[in-house]
Amino acid sequence: MQKPVMFSRHMEELQVAAEGLRRQSRLSLYEPPGIADIVRDVHEYAKNRHAGGHPPAVHEIEQSILVSAICGEADLIEEGVSVAHSLMEVWPRTRLPLDWVNGRVWLDGVLSRAQDVRELTRVVDQQIGYHKLTEIPNFL
């Protein structure tokens, strides 16, 4: 974990902190990543969480599918479903959310939500307002 940059030593510490961030980032900090880059990185993150013995990345996989849906990226939705299928077969039941019924029910629910792009758009717009991000360009 990087220590905070002190204002009194800002000029000296800023470059060191920026280089540390560049090394830690899985995505390029030099050019904006595309939706496909981000979604595929989430898939790798979910696989790595499982491989490392960490709790299942259920919500992250859900979000990767929903983001793909709101962006109209059918191929990414299919990739997300494929990753979900492979992971839900190996996720330990004891580490899944308490309301988890089974993988098929979960994935059907995610895909049902993914089909309602109007509702997804409403949620995104609501979150933009809630987090006061209205000045950030929206590329969707």
Rank of each mutant, 00 (worst) to 15 (best):
V16H: 10
A57R: 00
M11Q: 13
S68K: 05
S68N: 03
S82E: 14
M11W: 11
A17G: 07
V58H: 00
A69H: 01
D41M: 09
E31C: 12
E60Y: 12
L14Y: 05
I61H: 01
G52S: 12
H43V: 08
E12Q: 11
E79I: 13
A46G: 15
R40I: 10
L29V: 04
E60T: 08
D37G: 05
V58I: 13
I35A: 07
L21Q: 08
S25G: 11
E62W: 07
A74F: 07
L21C: 01
F7T: 14
Y45G: 08
A46K: 04
E31K: 10
S28K: 07
H54D: 10
V81I: 09
Y30H: 06
P55E: 06
A51S: 14
I35R: 03
Y45F: 14
I77D: 04
I35V: 11
H54S: 07
E44L: 15
H50F: 15
A74S: 04
V5N: 05
L29R: 01
A84K: 01
L29H: 00
E13L: 12
E73T: 01
E79K: 04
C71G: 01
E79N: 13
R49V: 04
V42Q: 00
H43D: 10
S64P: 06
Q15P: 04
E60S: 15
S28G: 15
E13G: 09
H59Q: 14
E62N: 12
G53A: 10
R23K: 09
I65N: 02
A57G: 02
R26A: 12
H43W: 14
V42W: 01
M11A: 12
P56W: 04
V67T: 01
H54Q: 10
E13W: 09
G53P: 06
P33Y: 08
E79V: 11
V42K: 00
E13D: 14
G80N: 09
L66W: 02
P32E: 01
P33H: 06
A69L: 05
P32W: 07
G34Y: 03
A17P: 05
A18N: 07
N48R: 15
H54P: 09
I61D: 00
N48Y: 12
